[in-house]
Design a binder for these strands. Sequence first.
DNA 1: CCTATACGATACTGTGGAGTTCCGGATCTT
DNA 2: AAGATCCGGAACTCCACAGTATCGTATAGG
Lengths: 226, 226
Amino acid sequence: MVQPDSHPPRLGRKRDHTRDPEILTAALEVLAETGFDGMTIDMVAARAKAGKATLYRRWPSKSELVIDAVACMKQNDFERSHLPDTGTLRGDLVAMIKPRTMEEAEKKLQIMAGLMSMLSAAPELADAANNALVRPRAEANLFLMQRAIDRGEISPDCDIATLSIVSPSIAAYRVLIERKPVDRKFLIALIDGVLLPALGLGRGAEVSNAEASNAVPSNAVASPTT
Amino acid sequence: MVQPDSHPPRLGRKRDHTRDPEILTAALEVLAETGFDGMTIDMVAARAKAGKATLYRRWPSKSELVIDAVACMKQNDFERSHLPDTGTLRGDLVAMIKPRTMEEAEKKLQIMAGLMSMLSAAPELADAANNALVRPRAEANLFLMQRAIDRGEISPDCDIATLSIVSPSIAAYRVLIERKPVDRKFLIALIDGVLLPALGLGRGAEVSNAEASNAVPSNAVASPTT
DNA sequence: CCTATACGATACTGTGGAGTTCCGGATCTT
DNA sequence: AAGATCCGGAACTCCACAGTATCGTATAGG
C-alpha cells in the first residue's frame, strides 16, 4: 500500500498523496486515545483536517487504515550507534532510561492498548505491534548484555536472551493492564533487583561497592536529559 | 448487585434469579472469545439459553453485566494451604506449573484481553483484572520465596517483591500481546534463567562451578501431571 | 384448577458509525 | 486563462446492535 501509482496522470494537480503522513499520524493519535473500536473515521478526518472521503480514496476500510498506520510506526528503533557506552552494564541500562525515550514508549504502548481488540482477528498485527514495542528494547538490552559478556563483565553462561525481554515485557504489562506509570524508580528496581542479580552482578558477586548507584563512569556518554 | 430483594413477592414463581450464574458464565465466555466491543447481548443470551429481556431485567446495561461477571470471577485464587512444599524453591516454583492451572490462567487472560478496550473508560476494572490475573500468582510466588528466605535457602536481601511479579507479568504479556503460548518450557526458562539466578541460586552461587546448568535439585517432586 | 409471576422468544425502535456520493473550491499543468 | 484533477465538507444510505415492548408458556403458590 501507498506505493506510487504505475500510471502517473499528467493533467491537473499531481496525484501526490501528500497528506498521507498527517492522516496516518492522526489515526495513531486517535487510536491511542480511544482504541480501535472507539475510533471513528470522522475523528481521524477531523484531526487531520481532511475529508472523510479523502481517507476512503486512499484506504478501503478503517481496518486497512489502522494497519497501515501501525506499519508506518516502525521509525526510530534503537540504532546500535545510538546506544550508550558507559563502561558498565548497569551504567548502560540506566542510561537507556531517558524521559524522551520513555514518553515515546508510553505513547506506543497506548496505541498498543487500542489495538488489543483487533489482535485476535488480525494475528499479524500482534507481530507488528510486538516489533514496534518490545522487540527494539529487547534487542538493545541484548546488545548491551552481549557486550558486557565480551568485555568479561558477566558470565557467558547467562541466559541473556530471556533476560533481555524481562524489563520491556513487564513495563508493557504495567502500562497496558495495571495502568500504572512506568517511572524511573520502577525501572531501576528491575535493573537492581532482577537483571543485575540474575547476571551475577549486584547481589551475586556484589561489586561490593554497593553504592554504585550513581556510578556513571568516566566516559559517560548517555546524553544529558534528552 | 445480585443482592436478594428486600421485599420478596409471595405469589407465583419465586424471584429466584436462579439463572444468574449461567448468564454470568456465558458472558465471560463470549467476552473471552470476542472482546467487549465484539460481544453482543444476543450472543450472551443465546449462549445462556436465556431471553435478552431476562438479561435486562437483572442488569441495566451491557457494561454493568460485564462488570458483574468480572467481579464474580475472583474464585479459586491460590490458597496457601494448597501451595506445594517440595523443600527447595526451584521445586516449589516448578510444581506450580500444572496444566490445569495454566489452562485456567490462559482463559482468564483471554477475558482480560477482551476487557482491554474498557480499561481506559473504567479504571477500576484494571484493578479487578489485575487482582484476578497476576496478583494471585505473584502472591503465591512471594510466599514461596519468603519461605525460602526463612529456611535460609536464599538471602534475605533479595528483592522478592519485585521478583515475584516477574513471571506472571511476562506470561501475561506473552499471551495478551505476543499471542504466543506460555508453555512449560518457557516458564522453566524464566525460573532457571531469571528468577533463581537473581536469587543467588543457580548461576549466582555457582559462578565458579560453571556447569550447574541442568541443576535439578535432588528432591524434585514437581507433581505428576495434574 | 386458577392466578400471579418470571421466563424465552421475537418483533420493534433508535442510534451511531461505516462507507458512498456529490459538489464547490483550490491547485497544478499547459 | 482554461482544463483536469484532487481536496474538504456535508448530506446521504445502510446496517448492526443496544435497549424496549409484547406475547405465549412454564411454574409455583393458593
